[in-house]
Write a protein that binds this DNA or RNA. Structure first.
Length: 201
DNA sequence: CGGCCGATCCACT
DNA sequence: GTGGATCGGCCGA
């Protein structure tokens, strides 16, 4: 079941970040469908959160996407190399977003392996936010797309496939790589579940 | 314009 | 553990 606007427009971005664990992120790029089970997320709480691109109500051509109604993709380029994938949440005008930090590759493994710039998938090393976009074929130029699969051509969406894991094993920590956010870097906005605890059916 | 910097990753010591 | 890659976004002049 595909997550719809009602899911993304909930008003607690931190709660949504937790709910996204175990959901399945899909892409259809050049007709090829790939997916990964979400195992790590981070909430970014808009204008009051120093770690957010929209901190202090900073509206720019890039961050304008975050001000849209929840359910669109906010994707941006970092370090000149990596496209980081976020989902926009909350109602129009509230620039909340959630970074998807890690997945377990699920469907379309062969296609993922063939993508340009993708290193071979190995069991041991993790898949971070930059690598997961490479694997799924997500590019920062797709920012602003609606998260559904009804459109023609390329698409991104997230589905609830009833994948189970022990809720009490969710780890909650500070966010990664945002020391510049000072006191807001202390917020416990990161959620992750060990990939070995996921029941893929 | 010019200059700084980043919600990362990987090669190398 | 450390530093370099690499380039768009943002800000200040």
């Amino acid at each position: 079941m595909i997550l719809d606007r009602d899911f993304y427009t909930q008003n607690d971005v931190v709660s949504i970040a937790k709910q996204l664990l175990g959901k399945v992120l899909y892409t259809r790029i050049d007709s090829a469908i790939c997916s990964g089970i979400i195992t790590e997320t981070e909430a970014y709480a808009g204008i009051t959160d120093k770690a957010s691109h929209a901190y202090n109500d900073r509206r720019t051509p890039r961050t304008e996407i975050m001000y849209r109604e929840g359910g669109d993709a906010y994707i941006y380029l970092i370090y000149g190399k990596y496209s980081l994938f976020n989902v926009v949440t909350n109602k129009t005008g509230v620039p909340h977003a959630i970074l998807i930090r890690s997945i377990v590759p699920f469907e379309g493994l062969e296609i993922m392996q063939q993508r340009k710039g993708v290193k071979p998938l190995s069991i041991k090393d993790g898949i971070g936010p930059g690598r997961l976009s490479r694997l799924l074929g997500i590019d920062y130029r797709m920012t602003g797309v609606v998260l559904n699969n009804s459109q023609e051509g390329n698409a991104i969406w997230i589905s609830d496939n009833s994948i189970n894991f022990p809720e009490d094993k969710i780890q909650i920590t500070k966010r990664i790589g945002i020391d510049y956010a000072k006191e807001d870097s202390e917020r416990l906005y990161r959620f992750l579940i060990d990939s070995t605890l996921i029941d893929k059916h």
